[in-house]
Every structure is written in structure tokens, then in C-alpha cells.
Design a protein around this nucleic acid. Sequence first.
DNA 1: TTTTTAAATAGTAACAATTATCGTTTTTAC
DNA 2: GTAAAAACGATAATTGTTACTATTTAAAAA
Lengths: 129, 129
Amino acid sequence: MKTLKYSRQRECIKNCLMGRRDHPTADHIYLSIRENDPNISLGTVYRNLNLLVELGEARKLSFGYGPDRFDGDLTPHYHFVCRECGSVSDLPLKPSDQLNHLAQSCCGGRIDSHLTYFYGVCQDCLKKV
Amino acid sequence: MKTLKYSRQRECIKNCLMGRRDHPTADHIYLSIRENDPNISLGTVYRNLNLLVELGEARKLSFGYGPDRFDGDLTPHYHFVCRECGSVSDLPLKPSDQLNHLAQSCCGGRIDSHLTYFYGVCQDCLKKV
DNA sequence: TTTTTAAATAGTAACAATTATCGTTTTTAC
DNA sequence: GTAAAAACGATAATTGTTACTATTTAAAAA
């Protein structure tokens, strides 16, 4: 089996992700890390972000457009996506297990999670219009 | 302003989408239509599917992997995604406006919709394992 | 320590999904 | 019918992401 080995780059990627609340894309993280480590490769960023997601140390967020985003905050919460500027922010709402059960009751298979994105216009963009 | 003109292809694409309940990808629709109209172009399918979504006559579904899927059923409902086979099915659950209001109350911006995907293992895949 | 191993890397090529371009065809208004 | 513009098919380009490969690095064994 494959055993994990320490890597300075992975450490750095994880720290970068944990240190921000803006749900960065792989490229955001790549650019940020490159300021101190100009030789890091975008492939390394993708590889490690996906690894962190597999290990359950990060979450991946996908919307219908643009690149995937990553979230280092593991506490269960929902997300809000601004249709104007594309920003993604956290909503301090606890995802309800009850909703899973409700869905379970009208679905032949087994449901174990759900993912909800709220869409609208963020505070900043409301001001602009 | 741009006025819409009739197109046989768009009609066909819309009919194809409305006629199925499996949330097809652009390529699924392309392949299906090509049986009767071998000259249709994949670009035309993409262009018209996106147009239909813009016009509010179809919905686009995006998950973290694989191509986007389309849904011609406009009645509000949720979706269930099987993590084993990737199939997408409808859940006869009415999305609650209340959830939008709840989210609204803890968000600076304006929320007008939400999108929920349930994840799990479908009936067919449960049998196989 | 050195040696050995396997994991991880950087750099780059390849890939999948989608969009843009462009010359031609089709729709529709006059 | 004629003309304007919308839509087409074919294909090139773009975007986001993954795969490949030779090299470097971490950690276990000698």
C-alpha cells in the first residue's frame, strides 16, 4: 500500500488553504505560494489539493462555471455564491440531517449527504447597482 | 437587440431534452439527434442548450466531475446523484422557500434560490455490492 | 552515517469539456 | 424576390485539470 510521505509543498498548500476564507481555486493557491516558492508547480497544487480532499482535510466546491474551489473549513456549513462577482462565502447554517432523511424516504437508494449552494447577489454587488 | 429566429435544430434539441428523464449531457443529446440528423454539430447542441437555460426553458446541473447535465423538467425539485454509477435522478421533494429565507437572515446579500444535490448509492448499485 | 526505497516534485504534454471563429445556409421582415 | 441578421456546421482555440517522466527528496534499512 501507498504510505504518505512528508512534503514541504503539501504543508505549504494546506497552510495556505487553512489561512484563507475566500474559497480559493487551485490557481489562487498556486499564485499565492509562488510568491515565496517560485518553483512550485501548478500540478503539485492540484495533486495535493485533491489528496487533501481524499484525506478529508479539505472540501471541493463545484459550480456550473469556472474552476473548482477549495475550502479548508471542515465544520458543516452551506455556501453562498454571488451571481454578479462569483464570490463564494460561508453561511453559518448547519446542514440538517433531517433533510437527508426526508430525501431518503422518497428515494430508492441510500442517501448519506447533501450539498446546497445558495445563489443571489452579495452585499458588495448590491451596493454597486 | 438580438431577436430569436426559429431553428429546426433548436426545436429538435428541446424536444429531445423534454422527452427524457435521465438528465443527459450535451453529448448524449448530440448522439441521440444524430441518428435522425447526421449533420448536426456538437457546437449547435451546446449553443442551444445554453440558450434554453438562459431563456429559462431548461436547467443545467453541475457536479464536481464529468460533463454538465441538462434537465428539461422545470418544476422545482431536487436531484440525487449516485456516487457509484454517476446516475442522476429526480427527487419528488419541493425545494423550500423557507430555506432561502433562513439563509437570507444570515447573509448580507440577497438570496433568491438554492440548489441541492443529494449524494449516495442508488437502488441498482446497492443490489450489485 | 551511507545506502536504498518509494513518494513527491517540476516541467511539460495530454486530455476532456466547452466556447469561439468563420464562411455558408436559413429564417424572416420588407 | 431581396436583404439583414440569426443560426448553422466544421473546426480551431481555450480552459481547467490530469498524466507522464526524469529528477529530487524523505524516510526506512543496512
